[in-house]
Design a protein around this nucleic acid. Structure first.
Lengths: 268, 268
DNA sequence: CGCGCTGTTGAAACTTGTCAAAGTTTGTGG
DNA sequence: CCACAAACTTTGACAAGTTTCAACAGCGCG
């Protein structure tokens, strides 16, 4: 009930695309020093990344936290499962997916992340990353060394609390996805996906009703536990019913209320 | 790949059982003071709950952390969605499920928790619990006021780090469930479920091959995204194939390797 | 300008869900 | 302590939803 609005989207890999399959392991160029020292306190995403209401001197400390920014080009991995865990990453610009793999090669997309969201918290427990994080468009992330984060957290309780909230939010988000996968049917899942994207774009100042998908139908399907054909059919159906307009990756929501109704009204 | 072993189990509510439907909101009797002050440092679950390698004085501090223990009888809620979040709970004895609800009444079990595991971390982000936690047998939990936990964490870095690991583990576990729900078929899901239970019982010193389920078929189904009939049929099928023996809630695993094979070998 | 990837659509097959009936277990009250 | 009721489980037959297989269209990149 409470976290449906929080359900969000990740997409699986497109197996036929060579760009996806030979990504260098983020030999990401580090920006020149002046560039990377762009302060958190000046960042227009700070409301998403950082706790509010810090004292001046605390803000100054926080600017030390991000020691480097990193570019990740479309198709490159930010990290892979089993990489040693050293830092979490705040997305400054761009769009990512995270995915876990089964031995037999099947892949499950566990999330899609956009600017202001944080990646890598799954790696804390085993000191290794436990999923792959892949850029779906050219992106830039702030690298936050985890040991530093824990140190500053002990000094700045607002930072500590904020970090705990971020991890907790991730757990709640995952519960939303579990609900989506466990009890919703195909069209409900897609409706929840679209509404969640819309909401997140809105929070970033973009149009609630018009946006471009960064992921393929296959990736959407992997996230939603559906085959790409099912996703495609559901899009077509929504369009027939006047709920949305689809042109390739471009989506226009024409009847948000209608989409919501799909979620709240038990099917016939 | 990495967290299949971590996939674990939760069950949904049995809609027809009055015990389930009128649980008092944990008017849990608080144990008498001597009882509740049983120290963490003496608890035989401390390896699961607490960081290892603390200094003597740190251990003494930790014993302050749990201010109360709480009994929760079978069928009672430990907390409900929307309850104010004040503490997390370490299970001392017993067995719980957590579940989220959709407006239309559909329920998704998000996890089953046993002794040594921690409940309630979903509530941090919104200061409200976001799911229901219900005892599946008479249980006892240690109440850890969250504000205190954050305070001690700032003083004891091992505690801080341990807590972060616990939250991270929860995220990784959820990813495992998402994989289960997203890409496995019914029998794979049930096999993963049984193996995960077996592993967790083993870690607690119980038999790896023989145990009693605490949850109903309906609850297993809700956790696994299946209907209870499908769960029942899968159990029967496993039994026919000699993988397990089932008598009601009593499970005996006869061929663990066979169950694992179900997970790793792509179906025909 | 054409090849390859991505997306769309149709028809058939398969898995799981739905409905129904009956068996089993557990709990309660007489 | 037994009897009855409620809850839970099992099994069958059938229906529905989703996947699979296949063919083709559209777009984008080289």
């Amino acid at each position: 009930m409470q976290q449906l609005g929080a359900v969000h989207v990740d997409a699986d890999q497109s197996p036929g695309n060579s760009t996806w399959h030979k990504p260098m392991h983020a030999k990401v160029e580090q920006l020149s020093v002046p560039a990377l020292r762009e302060a958190c306190s000046q960042c227009n995403l700070r409301e998403l990344c950082l706790p509010m209401g810090l004292a001046e001197d605390e803000l100054d400390q926080l600017d030390q936290l991000v020691d480097v920014r990193k570019r990740v080009l479309r198709g490159q991995h930010l990290y892979r499962g089993n990489d040693p865990f050293e830092a979490i990453f705040a997305i400054k610009t761009g769009f990512f997916k995270t995915a876990v793999l089964l031995e037999d090669g099947r892949e499950q997309v566990t999330g899609f992340q956009m600017a202001g969201e944080v990646l890598g918290m799954d790696g804390i427990c085993s000191e290794k990353h436990t999923c792959n994080a892949i850029a779906l468009e050219d992106s830039e992330v702030c690298v936050i060394p985890f040991a530093d984060l824990e140190n500053y957290s002990r000094a700045i309780s607002a930072l500590q609390h904020h970090f705990h909230k971020m991890m907790s939010r991730e757990i709640v988000r995952d519960h939303g996805v579990m609900m989506l996968l466990g009890i919703m049917r195909a069209e409900e899942r897609l409706a929840a996906f679209l509404l969640n994207l819309s909401q997140r774009f809105t929070a970033r100042g973009y149009s609630p009703t018009e946006f471009n998908l960064r992921m393929t139908r296959n990736e959407i399907g992997s996230y939603l536990g559906l085959k790409l054909e099912t996703v495609s059919r559901a899009f077509s159906r929504f369009q027939e019913e006047g709920l949305i307009t689809v042109h390739q990756k471009h989506i226009q929501i024409r009847d948000a209320a209608g989409l919501k109704k799909l979620l709240t009204e038990r099917r016939v």
